[in-house]
Structures are given as structure tokens and as C-alpha cells.
Write a protein that binds this DNA or RNA. Structure first.
Length: 536
RNA sequence: GACCGGGUAGCUCAGCUGGCAGAGCAACUGACUUUUAAUCAGUAGGUCGUGGGUUCGACUCCCACCCCGGUCACCA
């Protein structure tokens, strides 16, 4: 292929140009053109702009801690001033650069830390002095030198050699950072565009330490939960994401096709039915942390692809699962965040157990004045209309019950509470309530007005389960697209015997939102779903 | 899907009642060897989301569309 502009041969054209012409084009912002031009200058000066490796002795935080420990060990104040730590090798991105002519101060940033370095032209080797002229904000460099404290009091590496690790060709959207007297960091004109921050999460993470912190918390939450469950003899398992029949929840699936089998496959909407098959298989206690997919709307609390923790616990009923839930969530919060008290969307909550228990029907009757079992459909419709549901006429009984409950009860629950014993028709996978089969042994854990956990005493009677599936099928035939499929294989598994089992599903994204105070799921998902860009 | 708000330089934003497209940061040139939102002098940088319309003249007013955010609806 030939570049139409310079006539040189090229493997491919980017916007109709070879890469050197593309980077030099007036269509590129000036900072990009300048940075591309610096690549050639670097190579001329004998500097490879994209290195293969760098052997660092310390992270930035570790180097800082080492120096401070040495300083603390000095006895005399006079000694403290002259404390110097032997050379370290550290690496990071250039976050700031103050060029004073013969020398320059820069801050480097890595995953967790930030450290100032001082580059003096007469101290760094010749190649490094040439390199100093060609550095930009965002570049990755590695430096070596002793650590001292400047007259202005900042711990600083006196650079004796510097190596370019990776040249950035595109300017990162750094703000200007001001560090106040109290050590608080104020960023001026940072990276604010929410869409760009989600699409280019790499840039968001690179310039916003608090975003990195959010995802560090997320990672710690996941591993703390694994540890908590592993300690209690739960077995982590992996079940199919691609399924010939979806189930375990009520939602629209994503569908795809397997060519060899010539079979429609679905991305799972829940793990539930496979995990309970494992309990049939004597695995006793299992859990899975994985992605579920629901082909529905995208908003502040819904991403089509989200992370669910499901666990199943043989010989336990839903009351045991309530205890497990409140203990696990509060233990994990305490371990990861050091507290059980959180503020979320202006609401203050305490996750310390025990959580409040609220009987579903009592809360419903208190809020609506209606008995959820005795009230007829028209009364429910009238009540729903009174709460502002204009489409009440089109809703099924289950939808009416649920919408009234969500609008009038769930929104009002701030401190964590277990809402339990839902009407049986809302819970096709749960055992009937002991002594009152109009209800199911089911609970939802509600915090800050949203559902965090959904759990049951699992239905282990294959005859009852098949009948419930059949009732779902009738709803489906009547046009309810969200009603469940009959899963004959699952019923077969139940026929082999599911011991009494308690189980739950918890939205991991929502738990992380709660712990980090984020009110949008986009802020706790690294790459949230967005409409594809036309051109990057 | 409905309503509201937004889309202007690489980033963050201003732009009034229609009259030459602006600032700070980043970039570039120069000065400066302990600075830290470094400083000082200068330079350059634009398809004002897209397409129509009104007008002598549109970033600005009108219409349609696209994208983002919020609220509501949907998602029990």
C-alpha cells in the first residue's frame, strides 16, 4: 500500500495516510504532532522511546517509607537534615514537570504512590541530559539516585541516571494539582467528561488516583468474600455462562448461536439452577462469582453485564442464610473499609448485625392498607394508580404487588433490613412458607432503598418445582416474556434429591457502590457498556 | 421510550439581546540549577455535535437527527 501523501510504502492507511503522515497531519492536535516528532529526535539522540524492561528496587510508596524510616532513626536534628538514603531505582509516569533550566523537578506516579524527583543536567549522564529536553507529562520513566529531603521539605530522589520507559504520543488529561497545607490534594481542571472517562478508562485511571482506589477496593471486596467463604468450607465453582436454556431469574437474555451444534445459546441471566445441581451432586456448599447478562435497560444501577455472587448452603434454610448474609457483609466491610458505617447518596447506614427483619406482607399492608393475599386485582390496580402508576391496568398481579412494594416500602428502607416471606407466586424457585403456603420462604436484603441480596429456602420438591415451572409456562404463553422456562433437566436433578438448601444471590457491583459511596454502577465497573463510538 | 440539562481548542470552561471565536491549563520558542497550581516574556492552536431553515449576518433563533448525563418508565 502506498501513502497518497508521501508516496512511501506502508502496511496500512490510518484515515487514508501512513502513520508518519497521520501523526504529522494538521488534523492531529498540536501536542500529538510535537510528541510524534520527538520520537525521531529521541532515536537520533540514541534513546529508545519504548523500553523492554526496568529493574526497579522499590515502588514509590516503598521508597518514601524507607526514607522516612531512616530519617526517624536519626537522633540529632542536625543529622535529620543531612539524612540521605542510598540509591533506589524507581519508575512511574511524569505527573508534573517544573523546568528550571539547568535542573527540573518532576513528580512521578505509579499505581499507589507519588514521589518527587530532581533532575540536574550536570548530575545525570549525557544521554539523560538530552532526554530531559524531550520529556512530556505522562511519559513513563525510570530513575536511579539517592533520596533526600529538599529545603522546602519534600522527600525527593536526586536523579543520577534516567531511562525513558515509554513515550506517550497522546496528552493525558491531567489537571493541575495543588497540595494544601493540610496535605489535601485539590485538582484544578481535571478530567471531568463522564463519557470520555468511561470510554477511556485507561486515561481516567492514569490521571485520577481516586478512581484507582475505587477499583482497588473492589478487588479487595472480592478477595475478602472469597476468603470469608473459603474459611467456611464453601467451594468456589464455575458453571456455564453459555447455556442452552436460561433460568434462575426473570429477565430477557442475550442470545447467540453455536455453529457446530447448530443450537441457539443464551448468556446466563443467573447461576442458580446450575449451582443447585451441584448441591444435588453432594458438593454441599458452593459459590460462584461471575458475570450475568440481562438484555435490558442501562441506567445508574443497571449494566447489561454485571457481577453476581451466588452461594448455596446445604441443610440450611433462609433464616440461616439471613445470618450468613449480615455476618458476611459486615465482616467484609470491616475488613476492607475498617468500618460498618457508610454514607451513600446522603443516607447514613450501619451494616453491623443484626439487621432488621420485616415481614413482607406486614410492610405491604402497612404501606398500602391492603392485604396482599386477600385483596383482589382491581383493588391493587386502584392502589397502584393512586401511587402514580398510569400503566397499572396492564400489569399482572405479581407485577402490581412488586411495583407497590418497590414504590412504597423498599424505597423507604435505609438501614439494612431483611424483607421476608414474599407471596409464593412471586417466587417460583422458593419453598412454601412452613404453615402458610400462600407465602414463600424468601427474603431480600434491602439497603439504602435498593435490593442487595435475594435469597430462599430452595425449593427441593421436584413435583412442586415442575408445577411451578408449568405455571410460569402458562404466564409465558399468555404473553409474559419474563416468565420462566420449564427446565426438565433441572427437575431431573431434583428427582435425584436436593437436600434442604439455603441460597442467595448478591449484586457485587451494588455492594461495591455502597462501600465506596458511588451512586452510579458506571463508577464501579471498569468498562461499562456504552454505545459504540463511530471513530476513536 | 418521555421530559429536563449538556455537546465550543488536547483538557476544564466562558461566550449577554444575532454583529470579527475567548480564558486558564497543556503545547511550542526563549530565560531561569531547591521547584511544587513554579515564575517571566513571546507564539501557535477551532468543521462551535451533525444536517437543514430564518436572516444582510447564526456559537447564539427555529426544525430534524446523533451522542452524553439526570429524572421517570421498562428491568417483578
Amino acid at each position: 500500500m502506498t501513502c497518497p501523501q508521501c508516496g512511501n510504502e506502508t502496511a496500512g492507511l490510518r484515515d487514508g495516510l501512513c502513520l508518519p503522515c497521520w501523526y504529522a497531519s494538521e488534523d492531529r492536535p498540536k501536542p500529538m504532532r510535537d510528541r510524534f516528532a520527538k520520537l525521531a529526535q529521541l532515536r537520533e539522540a540514541g534513546v529508545e522511546p519504548f523500553a523492554y524492561s526496568f529493574d526497579r528496587t522499590d515502588t514509590l510508596d516503598a521508597a518514601l517509607e524507607k526514607f522516612e524510616a531512616l530519617e526517624a532513626a536519626a537522633d540529632e536534628p542536625a543529622d535529620k537534615e543531612s539524612v540521605e538514603l542510598d540509591a533506589v531505582r524507581i519508575a512511574g509516569r511524569i505527573l508534573s514537570y517544573r523546568d528550571l533550566g539547568g535542573s527540573a523537578f518532576a513528580h512521578l506516579g505509579d499505581r499507589d504512590g507519588r514521589l518527587q524527583v530532581h533532575l540536574k543536567k550536570n548530575l545525570v549522564e549525557e544521554e539523560g541530559a538530552a532526554l530531559m529536553e524531550l520529556l512530556d507529562l505522562g511519559d513513563w520513566i525510570g530513575v536511579e539516585g539517592p533520596i533526600f529531603r529538599t529545603r522546602r521539605g519534600e522527600v525527593t530522589v536526586r536523579v543520577e541516571s534516567v531511562k525513558l520507559l515509554s513515550k506517550t504520543l497522546r496528552p493525558l488529561p491531567f489537571g493541575k494539582e495543588e497540595v494544601g497545607e493540610d496535605g489535601e490534594r485539590v485538582v484544578h481542571s481535571g478530567f471531568a467528561d463522564t463519557e470520555a472517562r468511561s470510554r477511556q478508562r485507561y486515561a481516567d485511571l492514569a490521571v485520577n488516583p481516586d478512581v484507582r482506589e475505587t477499583f482497588r477496593v473492589r478487588s479487595r471486596v472480592t478477595s475478602a468474600i472469597r476468603r470469608w467463604l473459603d474459611d467456611r468450607d464453601f467451594l468456589e465453582v464455575e458453571t456455564p455462562v453459555l447455556q442452552p436454556l436460561y433460568g434462575g431469574a426473570l429477565a430477557r437474555p442475550f442470545s447467540t448461536h453455536h455453529h457446530t451444534l447448530d443450537q441457539t445459546m443464551y448468556l446466563r441471566i443467573a447461576d442458580e439452577l446450575y449451582l443447585k445441581r451441584l448441591i444435588v451432586g453432594n458438593l454441599d456448599r458452593v459459590y460462584e462469582i461471575g458475570h450475568d447478562f440481562r438484555n435490558e435497560g442501562i441506567d445508574r444501577t443497571h449494566n447489561p453485564e454485571f457481577t453476581m455472587l451466588e452461594l448455596y448452603y446445604a441443610f440450611a434454610d433462609y433464616e440461616a442464610v439471613m445470618e450468613l448474609t449480615e455476618n458476611m457483609v459486615s465482616d467484609v466491610a470491616l475488613e476492607v473499609m475498617g468500618t460498618t458505617k457508610f454514607e451513600w447518596d446522603g443516607k447514613h447506614v450501619d451494616l453491623a448485625p443484626p439487621w432488621k427483619r420485616v415481614r413482607w406482607a406486614d410492610a405491604f399492608e402497612e404501606a398500602t392498607g391492603l392485604d396482599p393475599i386477600a385483596a383482589d386485582d382491581s383493588a391493587l390496580k386502584a392502589r397502584a394508580q393512586a401511587t402514580g402508576r398510569e400503566d397499572a391496568d396492564t400489569l399482572s398481579r405479581v407485577q402490581l404487588l412488586d411495583s407497590l412494594f418497590s414504590d412504597l416500602v423498599e424505597d423507604q428502607i435505609i438501614d439494612p433490613a431483611f424483607v421476608y416471606d414474599h407471596p409464593i407466586e412471586m417466587s417460583p424457585l422458593a419453598k412454601p412458607k412452613r404453615g402458610n403456603p400462600a407465602f414463600a420462604e424468601r427474603f431480600e436484603a434491602v439497603v439504602c432503598g435498593f435490593e442487595l441480596v435475594n435469597a430462599f429456602s430452595e425449593l427441593n420438591d421436584p413435583i412442586d418445582q415442575w408445577t411451578r415451572f408449568a405455571e410460569q409456562q402458562l404466564l409465558r404463553d399468555a404473553g409474559d416474556q419474563d416468565a420462566m422456562n420449564i427446565d426438565e433437566d433441572y427437575v431431573r436433578a431434583l428427582e435425584y434429591g436436593l437436600p434442604p438448601t439455603g441460597g442467595f444471590g448478591m449484586g457485587m457491583d451494588r455492594l461495591v457502590m455502597l462501600l465506596t459511596g458511588k451512586t452510579s454502577i458506571r463508577d464501579v465497573v471498569l468498562f461499562p457498556m456504552l454505545r459504540p463510538e463511530e471513530g476513536a
